[in-house]
Design a protein around this nucleic acid. Structure first.
Lengths: 205, 205
DNA sequence: GACAAGATACCGATTGGTCGGTATCTTGCA
DNA sequence: TGCAAGATACCGACCAATCGGTATCTTGTC
């Protein structure tokens, strides 16, 4: 019946990791500025002293979330699939198809964590902007090199400018997610991505 | 030496209007949640009492900004040009060209006020979401009917689905603005819109 | 015993919002 | 036309709550 505060054993790694994921969720739900440290602490049963032992400021915590949670997440969900095959358009179609089919309620509700932070924080904090830009740059680069390789393999139209098209596709993806989020509609999200699929198809040689 | 409170004449309309535009700027710079009423008041030299006479809550002020500032602004800058000519693709190309040429520093710095509020507020407040969705719906509708008319005039490909394509184009526009904003780069913004122009071009019959 | 990890009480600053009061403007009535 | 009465506009001190952050302390670990 006791509230069981007996946390004899320590696990700094786990404490830090728990803070990161709780902060990620809090930021996803409320944005960074409105994210409450108190709520994060309440959700992790971690004390404020512990938090400020691992992170020197709220800003540091936010930057760590970008580097250690958001970046890896996007890497596995969007970048990795590109290196699997030699046909970049087929890879992209497959990725988009998967996004359409597994349209998560979380994506519709909270949108893309990357885009959320971009719109909120990039004009306010250069550190945030750079951290986010790194992710965008990698994303565009992966896609651009895949497109260029596809051109060599004669699977992508020769007049396509890989870098430019990759940039546009990333923009379109973020746009689709954003619209689906405001419409709170899985269908709108899917319809939007379907048009992107048609665009990608038109890039084929 | 008195603080000079001589406000002999009244002008409620102007007071309200001043609050709206100051709030618009504050929201554009800081987001809605982080927008400070104190700063808005300081920038307008309006008292807190006056503010709460015209708007019952901060939320009300935000909703009024959406309806009375953001909506008209987007209407004149994006919707109106469509009704001018009978070739929707030419109209769209012209609008995009103008956006590319007049790429404002403000757009690069703060992005699209509509998209900003969507990403921040739509999961948090149903009133905000609906107000923003109204604008999106009108935008898509105007573009979709223009595309449909263009099909009748044999200027737009017959296999184009007006509603779907219009949705996608709006998504792409918001995406381009968002990416340019995070890159803090006019060029990235322009390059992104150029690819959108190529896409629009591909819709021609 | 030295130091990392965690706990807790506390701080000043800022937040959105309230409230009693005042000044100006409009309106109805004589 | 004159004037009282009530509505509208505005003022600014004040409020409780919450914010991020700090200082001091105890406890677990090597």
């Amino acid at each position: 019946m006791m509230p069981q505060p007996i946390r004899k054993t320590r696990n700094p790694e786990q404490t830090r990791c728990g803070l990161l994921s709780a902060a990620y969720i809090e930021i996803l739900e409320s944005g960074f500025q409105a994210a409450s440290l108190e709520r994060i602490l309440a959700n992790t049963s971690v004390s404020k002293g512990a938090l400020y032992h691992h992170f020197s400021t709220k800003r540091d915590l936010g930057l760590a979330v970008i580097q250690e949670v958001i970046a890896p997440q996007l890497a596995t969900r969007w970048f990795a699939p590109f290196t699997e095959h030699d046909d970049p358009l087929a890879s992209l179609q497959r990725i988009l198809e998967e996004k359409i089919n597994t349209a998560d309620e979380s994506v519709i509700r909270y949108g893309c964590p990357l885009n959320n932070l971009i719109q909120e924080m990039s004009p306010l904090d250069e550190g945030f902007r750079c951290g986010l830009q790194q992710i965008l740059d990698r994303w565009v680069e992966v896609m651009a090199t895949a497109l260029a390789d596809g051109q060599i393999a004669r699977k992508v139209r020769a007049d396509v400018e890989p870098e430019e098209v990759a940039l546009f596709i990333v923009a379109a993806i973020e746009g689709c997610v954003g619209l689906g989020k405001n419409a709170q509609s899985v269908e709108a999200y899917q319809r939007c991505l379907r048009q992107l699929q048609l665009y990608v198809k038109s890039l084929a040689a």
